[in-house]
Amino acid sequence: MPGLLVLMGSGETSPTMVEIHRAAARKLRAGARAVLLDTPYAFQENHADISARARRYFARSVGLEVEVAAAGITGADWVFSGPGSPTYALDRWAGSGVDGDLRARVRTRQGVTVLASAAACTAGLATVPVYEIYKVGAEPHWRDGLDLLEPLGLRAVLIPHFDNAEGGTHDTRYCYLGERRLSRMERELPPGTAVLGLDEHTALIIDLGDESVRVAGRGGLTVRLPGSATVLPTGTRTDVAGLRRLAEGGEAGPAAAAPPSAPAAEPAVTLEESIRACEEQFKAAVAKPDMVAAAQTVLDLEAEIVKWAADTEEDTGGVEQGRELVRLLIARLGELASTAALRSLVEPLLTLRATLRQEGRYELADALREAMLRGGVAVEDTPDGSRWTTAP
């Protein structure tokens, strides 16, 4: 079976990467054995839930039934590993022989191997210990990687989450290292080593048979050397030789910039983007006001959350953030519905009071205002007319 190496920057079990998974799965023979290596997140208390969600994702979205294992991938047609701790995975793989099995898959150019997020971080000659540096505060340093790219003549490290922007006020690019720490760590790499930076929701797809290379997804692949960086955007097609030349500081050649023969598909929207869009749509609907449109926005957001429910990338908190927004918008809808019902009662009373005032019947107008106040509605007379609010 022709070999394929797919490296993903993030989003490995999200709707954004479905088509990439499907394209890889189409290379498999009938009855292929598919294995999900759970090692990177096996230390987490919810590892069984993460595996179950990943299995559902591959079964429902990709059409691939997968088994979960910590080792035993020899002869597997398809191997996948994703989020968690790169160093935890490396330590366990070294003790079980998985590291050698993964290298053999690339060296013999057989089988489909898909590594994403933490697992993708292990693919180069050195690995970013992201948990230790970013979450524990260890001094920036490298760990030896699997060096899966060495059989392809690539002397490089692979950094996923390259365009991460979760930090807001602090720099979390480059798999949460930021520029300051990455620059320092680059000086510690062996001479001639390039950094291959994979953006989130982006894949580097290497056909191990014909050595063709493709960048797919939402972002790009950055080939970074001291003093220079070349970005291959999504849709870029080249070959291993062209990528190797870039990693060595040369020109990739004309193939690297060649666009795909067919128009590129519209990039899939991330859950974070959907959440922001729904918030804006809800505000616009309420401002009109259009309660039907506002309610539909909540339903649309709920449907989007269901689509993303299998996402195993928990650090962003996207699904839970979406659920919190749904609860908030539902509560807001309840408030608005109550206000709308109250308005249908109050507005006619205000019209009656305005008529009484125009006719000089101020005593009755004041009595009506007092009665409305006892009912929980405060009326204020202004130069622009009467305004009302719910009384505390």
Score class of each variant (00 low, 15 high):
Leu4Glu: 12
Ser10Asp: 00
Glu12Val: 02
Thr16Asn: 13
His21Ala: 12
Ala24Asp: 00
Pro40Ser: 06
Ala42Ser: 12
Asn46Ser: 14
Ile50Ser: 07
Glu67Lys: 10
Ala70His: 01
Ala76Phe: 06
Asp77Ala: 03
Phe80Leu: 10
Pro83Gln: 12
Ser85Gly: 04
Arg109Pro: 01
Val112Ile: 03
Thr113Glu: 08
Val114Ser: 03
Ala116Ile: 00
Ala126Asp: 13
Val128Lys: 04
Tyr131Ser: 07
Trp142Cys: 09
Leu146Asn: 10
Leu146Ser: 11
Asp147Ile: 02
Glu150Lys: 15
Glu150Val: 01
Leu152Gln: 11
Gly168His: 11
Arg173Ser: 07
Tyr174Ser: 01
Gly178Ile: 00
Arg181Glu: 02
Gly192Glu: 10
Val195Thr: 04
Glu200Leu: 00
Ala203Asn: 14
Leu208Met: 11
Val213Ala: 04
Ala216Glu: 13
Arg224Tyr: 04
Ser228Leu: 01
Thr230Pro: 05
Val231Gln: 00
Val240Asn: 14
Gly250Arg: 12
Ser261Glu: 15
Glu266Pro: 08
Ala268Leu: 14
Lys283Tyr: 09
Ala284Phe: 08
Glu304Ser: 12
Ala309Gln: 15
Gly318Phe: 02
Leu325Pro: 05
Arg332His: 15
Arg332Ser: 13
Leu333Glu: 08
Gly334Tyr: 06
Leu342Ser: 07
Ser344Leu: 06
Leu350Val: 00
Leu350Gly: 02
Glu363Thr: 11
Ala365Asn: 02
Arg369Pro: 03
Ser386Asp: 01
